[in-house]
Every structure is written in structure tokens, then in C-alpha cells.
Design a protein around this nucleic acid. Structure first.
Lengths: 220, 220
DNA sequence: TTGGGATTGTGAATGGTTTCACAAATCCGC
DNA sequence: GCGGATTTGTGAAACCATTCACAATCCCAA
């Protein structure tokens, strides 16, 4: 089986979002050209992306919206729900708890941990904050860990989370995490994006260096 | 002048963060090998990244931490402060206001806008929320706009922001934005990252497709 | 049932990024 | 100052992702 790039997987998510929207609007069929236009890519790219996983379209007609939706949900592993633990009951964590848009997509935050004894045991956004010390024991039934702790603490937390058997981490700490090959990490780093904009602004102003394609989160 | 990829710019930010940390720890000199190891890349990559902008190292010795720090800050446009407007005083916006880590990096949120009349005029995280209707007039001295509104409203907001002369946008809405060539957009999309993890988990489980490098935000 | 128009799926070509490998440069001990 | 050890900067090679281009397929109307 061929290798699939992270870029491709990210685009599949984008396609799925559009399909879901169109489905609600009653659209039943869609050509790669239109799909591409609305997702900011090219028709060839769409077809190539899908071709890694099978053939989903009808020549001369396009893709059936419900069928492709279902196929993408399967590919992305969204036919089931995932149990997520939030580690770090701070500002970022609070925003994530409040912004429960993930739940719609199948991600349930079912546990919250924090190192601060003052927070442990208290109810917080509908869950009781648990002690960091209980991580090992409590993470048994967790598939994804969201790490929202200060940078200094992140690697330690990640080590423990991995030891508890978690194989997927969404990292909000602005730091490089070392993890074994079988663990997937995605990092969200707003400061990094802002600096990218800052770079664009100063380079727009003086002489216009051109910026091309795009970077990717680490895995392993 | 050569093209510089977004990957390269993102890595420069990562290098800078490490250098700042090491500087605090009193480290004065650093080889590309060590820099790379601690940033999760390769020594050749580090040297290539820097080579786009000049020569900063001493052969046989490595890089002077203060000098490289200063050079990177210059390249990334971080020697000045940037005026940022937040558009959308909702959950995500609140998290950003609370998490004022950007301020340390030189990004000041100096204005907040919202479409909800109930919010306009009220103080919110230290600023008075302004009306969306005032966007045009108020954005004059703003360089970066953070778009934290619902997906449906995002494109409309972005159009107005661009019309007001803003040329850099940090987008939190899970939607593709169309912008002219001279406007830089970076999108932060947590749902997308989670779906990437979901994909990794199901593919780890069955047959292990291997995932390679990574995607990039759009510009133009 | 056949023909015309549309659109997919994919090998080949292109373009871009990362890695390799080594000459040039620097430091340091003697 | 000289020689050896070290590390940079960079062209060339390898690798990966995107775009191109077209045969294969399908729908539909007549």
C-alpha cells in the first residue's frame, strides 16, 4: 500500500467538511472540479488524494455526496467516537472545554487532569479535575491525550501518557516532543503562526520574497 | 533572492524559541547538530534554512547564540511590535485574550470586535468590545486580524478586513478563505488535527500505512 | 443501441524540499 | 605559526508532492 502524506489526510478532512455541508443543503452529486474549487485545491489533487484509498467516483458524473461522505468518514476513522483526556486545566484547556465543537465530530473529552492540588477534586466545565498522579491509572480507556500544560512540563507529561498506552497526542505546548515511532503527535502553536504572519508582513514590505508551499506536524 | 518555503519560516521560529531558552540558560555557542537535535530536524536542514538569509555561523565552532537570536528576530520581523485586532468575542477569542503569551513575542491585541449588540460597548478582558460596523474605520492602525467568528461569517469578515487594508490574517474558523495574493492567511484548525490523529490511530491498528511529511497553510 | 459530452483514475512530467557529501574556514594545543 | 579536529555553507542527488494529460468509463438522449 502506498504512502499517504499528512497533506493528503488533512485535505480529506477538508473535503469531508464541505461534503457534510453540501449534504445538509441537499446536494447529491459533486465533481472533483467543484469540490476542489470550494476547498482551495485542484481537481487533479482531489482525485489523486482519493485514489490512495480506492475509487469512489463515477466517470462522467462525479461523486455521490452521501457515498463519498461515508467513505471519508471511514478512512479518517470517524465512524466511531474517541475518548479524549485533557491534561492541564488552564486557559487553553478551558477554551477547549467551552468550545465543544469536537464533540460533534466524535471526540469526547471524558477526563481532565491537572498538577495543581488546588484544582484537583473540583468540578470544572462539567468534569471533576483529577490529579496528575492518577494519570497512569485513569488513562486506561483513553485513546487521545490533549496536552495543554506549560512547555517545561510537556515532555514529562507526554512520557507518562505514552507509558499509559496512549498513542495519539494533540500538543498545545510550544515545544518539541520526543515520542516513539508508534505514537502520533500533532502540535498546535499559535505563536508560530503569528510569527509566520510577521515574516510575511516584513517581506511583503521589503522586496517581496515569495513563499511557496507548507510545513507539517511531526509524527514519531 | 531565492524562494523561502513556509516550512523554513516555521522552523526559524522553532530555532528562535530554543535559542531564547538557551540564552537564558547562559549558553553562548551552539552547533547546527545540537540545534537540530533539540528542534527535531537535521543539521543540514538547519544550515540550509539559515543559508537563505545569510551566513551566521563560524566554521569549526557553530553559531553565537546572541547573534543568531538577533538575526532570526530580524528575519521574522520580531524587532518591532504588531497591532492585532481580535474579531469575534466568543469562546476562542476569550481563550486568546486570557492566554496572552503572544504579548511576550510582540503581538498586542489592541481592539476587539463583535457582531452581537449585547456585547458591543461592554468591557471584555480589558478592552471595550466594538461593533462590527466600525471595523472599517477602526482597523486603520491594525496590521494583523485574528478571525474567531463562526465559519458562516468568516468570509464576509475577511473581505471587510482586507478592504480596511489588513494584510495578515490568523484564521480560527474551520473554512477555506479566499483572499487576494497580497494577503497572508494562516489557519488554525484543531478539529483537523484531531481528525489526523484519528486517521493515525485507525491506520496504526490496521496494516500500518506510513505517513510522511506535512501540509501548509495557504497564502493568497 | 449508438453517439456525444462529461468526468474519473492514473502514469508520466514537473516542481519543490530535504538529504548528502565535501571543500572551505575556523579554532586550539603545541 | 602549524596540524588536526571540528563545523559551516552549498552544489548535487535523492526524495516527495503536485500537476498534466489522456485513455477508460459512464450517463443520457434520441
Amino acid at each position: 500500500m502506498k504512502k499517504v502524506s499528512e497533506s493528503t489526510v488533512a485535505r480529506l478532512s477538508v473535503y469531508l467538511r464541505l461534503l457534510t455541508e453540501l449534504s445538509g443543503a441537499g446536494v447529491t452529486t459533486l465533481a472533483s472540479e467543484e469540490l476542489a474549487r470550494r476547498c482551495g485545491t485542484s481537481a487533479a489533487q482531489v482525485r489523486k488524494d482519493l485514489s490512495f484509498f480506492g475509487t469512489f467516483g463515477k466517470r462522467g458524473l462525479g461523486y455521490s455526496v452521501p457515498e463519498l461522505t461515508s467513505a471519508l468518514r471511514g478512512i479518517l476513522g470517524l465512524e466511531r467516537r474517541w475518548r479524549v483526556a485533557l491534561i492541564g486545566a488552564g486557559k487553553i484547556g478551558a477554551a477547549l472545554m467551552a468550545y465543544q465543537d469536537f464533540r460533534r465530530q466524535g471526540f469526547d473529552i471524558v477526563a481532565v487532569f491537572d498538577a495543581d492540588p488546588a484544582k484537583v477534586g473540583r468540578e470544572w466545565h462539567g468534569l471533576v479535575v483529577q490529579s496528575d498522579a492518577d494519570l497512569q491509572r485513569e488513562l486506561e480507556r483513553i485513546e487521545i491525550a490533549i496536552v495543554a500544560v506549560p512547555a517545561e512540563a510537556a515532555q514529562t507529561v507526554v512520557n507518562r501518557v505514552i507509558e499509559a498506552g496512549v498513542r495519539a497526542i494533540l500538543n498545545f505546548a510550544p515545544t518539541k516532543l520526543s515520542v516513539p515511532d508508534h505514537v502520533a503527535v500533532k502540535t498546535v502553536n499559535m505563536a508560530l503562526e503569528l510569527e509566520g504572519l510577521s515574516y510575511a508582513l516584513v517581506n511583503e514590505a521589503r522586496g517581496s520574497r515569495r513563499v511557496t508551499s507548507r510545513p507539517a506536524a511531526s509524527r514519531g
